[in-house]
Amino acid sequence: MNGGVSGPLFSFSNVTGGYGATTVVRSAGGEVSPGEACCILGRNGVGKTTLMRLLTGHLPLQSGSVRFDGQSLDGLPPDRRHALGLIYCPQERPVFDNLSVRENLTLMAPAIDEGRYAPFFAAFPILESRMTQSAGTLSGGERKILSFVRGVAEAGRLLLLDEPSEGVQQENVERMAGFLHEAKAAGRALLIVEQNLAFALDIADRVIVMDHGEVVLAGAAADMTEETLAAHMHV
């Protein structure tokens, strides 16, 4: 680690952007330090996924800055960000549908490394039993698990997960939470978009609430009551 002991590993400020001329996210800011999880909450349509895509380089910033490990990420394409240690699991189309489960896991690694995936296969045996099947035949929740495993097993220092629990069965959501606690304990930083409030509060140290493309509430998770947060997410 060369990011300094106390400073945040990843920070973004004044991030504004959207699709074409349309601005979806306005002046969003936040940060995560190693060993810490930050959850982004909010109703659907408030710009959470757009913010993730702005942070991971899939959409250009209209203004603002994104810094990782003291370095500006401005203009870096997604694959270069990945090389620096930003691991991103998107919300939609989270896996390569026409590749097998095995190919999804070994795309950037020479072979299935038993040591690397063993704990995941133990927790999610469905993956191991579907190794040769194409990922497109998995259910929505199974695809999210595959994407989650691919991301968490990588060595990057920052994990960006966009709604990892969407469509996943409750028992598997709990297993995911377990892996995320381990990742935090190992000093990795997590930035997670979630809809499942219980899951989010289980892992979050920090919370960012968005509405209308803006950050409307931010702070330590311990300072927020579940009722306050639910009010922002429920109808």
Binding site: H58, P77, F96, N98
Partner: peptide, 25 residues
């Protein structure tokens, strides 16, 4: 081959391909 796999991955899902570290360009 690994390259063939990566080509198929890009064809299938260009955005994800960048995210998993394939130098798409």
């Amino acid at each position: 081959s690994a390259t063939g796999r990566r080509i198929r991955a890009v064809v299938n899902n260009r955005e994800l391909a960048g995210s998993v570290g394939i130098p798409v360009t």
